[in-house]
Design a protein around this nucleic acid. Sequence first.
DNA 1: TATTATGGTGAAAGCGATTTCAATGACAGG
DNA 2: CCTGTCATTGAAATCGCTTTCACCATAATA
Lengths: 326, 326
Amino acid sequence: MVKMKDVAELAGVSSAAVSRYLNGGYISADKAERIKQAIELTGYVRSSQARALRTGSTKLIGVIVPKINSESVSRITAGIGQVLARRGYQMLLANTDNAADRELEYLDLFQNHPVDGIVLVATMITDEHRRAIDSCRVPIVLIGQHVEGAACVYHDDYEAAFELGHALAGRVDGKIAYIGVTEEDRAAGYDRRRGFEAGLRAAGNPLDAALIRLGSFTLDSGYGAARELLSVAPDVSFIACATDTMAAGALRAIDEVRGMGEGIHRVSGFGDNAFLRALTGGIPTVHYGYLTSGVEATNMLLNTLDGVEGESGLKTLKLGHQLMNV
Amino acid sequence: MVKMKDVAELAGVSSAAVSRYLNGGYISADKAERIKQAIELTGYVRSSQARALRTGSTKLIGVIVPKINSESVSRITAGIGQVLARRGYQMLLANTDNAADRELEYLDLFQNHPVDGIVLVATMITDEHRRAIDSCRVPIVLIGQHVEGAACVYHDDYEAAFELGHALAGRVDGKIAYIGVTEEDRAAGYDRRRGFEAGLRAAGNPLDAALIRLGSFTLDSGYGAARELLSVAPDVSFIACATDTMAAGALRAIDEVRGMGEGIHRVSGFGDNAFLRALTGGIPTVHYGYLTSGVEATNMLLNTLDGVEGESGLKTLKLGHQLMNV
DNA sequence: TATTATGGTGAAAGCGATTTCAATGACAGG
DNA sequence: CCTGTCATTGAAATCGCTTTCACCATAATA
């Protein structure tokens, strides 16, 4: 492995000069040229490990996600990756498989060394999370949840759910049921349910608390909850879900119980999943710019790291949403 | 930042002793105890950067994927992540967005430093790729393509497609069309089409070359190709696709042209997408153990890195498949 | 008693960069 | 001719860890 010293010797300069050449310090034109040639000749590349040790920066960003194989998360991740690549950073991906403790574990692992910053695609934010985030020694940006005092990029789930509920209330005759997710997930659990309920109520068609079920983000859980709802309350005519994935499960359940194709106009979701859109012609749902949130969060993080001027750096950013098919 | 020397001083030993304690070298029980306490007291964590510089190993594995927001890839990635986490490695994720040149770029970037090994979720393998793989100075495992002389975990796309074609030939009356992907993707492009054609032919119902179209892995491309097919050849009664995603697009096209729900029994795909399964009740498709391929490939890679005995290390591994809904 | 082993130990030499620092030479102004 | 600037330069000091090496006890063997 050719190192800087070798290049320096070949070029007849000191390694300090080579370093300066590489990092844009004082260097005369002719030496620069000699160094350039020596580098080409030897095929030298600098050791990022030595560089990291010396400078303390690794150009690595830790990205913590609750689940990699989900459309929303992978779109966010795509956005993060885009920005990172463009700005010369790399992504250290950690998948917690929806386990809050592994989230903390990674938060620990990451700040305990290799990364310059962290993007946390958040689900549940416990007090422990808050503490971990506060005491994090590298900058961190949250995506998906709004946490006081932390930098975050999020959507207004309450408002979106309100609008959806309000719009739906008028169009649906008969009983509406709701399949949510754990309220520990403030955004997708609490806010969406509360918003949806408020929207229905405002339109004069309040949600019956007995028709609320809890899923776990998966298609199967949506299916299961819907089956149960349909058997307990056969007069339910519409099932609103906290995610498109669960809506897909509910759709299958309705189709099974009431016949194929029947369900399509009887569910709503969140997230505007591409498959769902194509295969059903579009259920009522909320479109979020997931890719954008990845992009924005990452830019925010990198701006503070790179000390970009004119940028206030870490802050909180609420992105818009769009009602679909209502 | 507390460093090893501090711990050593507090414990009244040399830093060499601390290092040995951490790495399982000779150390007496009482010193071990003192060091343990000193570490707890100071909250010391070792600098992975210094360690990396000294040992030359980063415990980082580079993972190159063509697209992060795709169900198959994200399942593979989930498998990779699982193994990596369990075995004390971290994942450096690089997304090439289906650009072959960026694949090479990352291959370069990765071996030019920080990673101990590479997992390449491969699509196209050009000569340049082969060269890059050969000259890679860290071990590398491919997923999804079979390349002579390289370690790879893959599926037998030809055989699977053959079986699918053979099984479908009997059940479909009328013309069958095919929407494939670029043949530069040997597995998903060439093998699937060839296998499918051979399967149909063997069953006495050969594919009309005029009814073959090319998509680009996306839902929209499947939609577009199917619309075009249906307008050019209205008598087509079945559209086989090289991926479930494109099949979803084809489904939408058929539904639009022939009425909702009509398309469901008129397409086939590859990959056994969960949404498609739930929303259509299941089109004919091939189930691959994507998560498993991630797991196997990563274990293979890590076994050679960690020098696990009894393991032959890098080799080639063909995983099975399963026909669904035929 | 004279040797080997053998478990433990710390000093010190790197790993391959970056960065400080003092020194140099050239050159403009006085 | 002297002095102050200023662009350049290389030696050397880190960064924080791992690992060799020489060395010391002490226990086991001859």
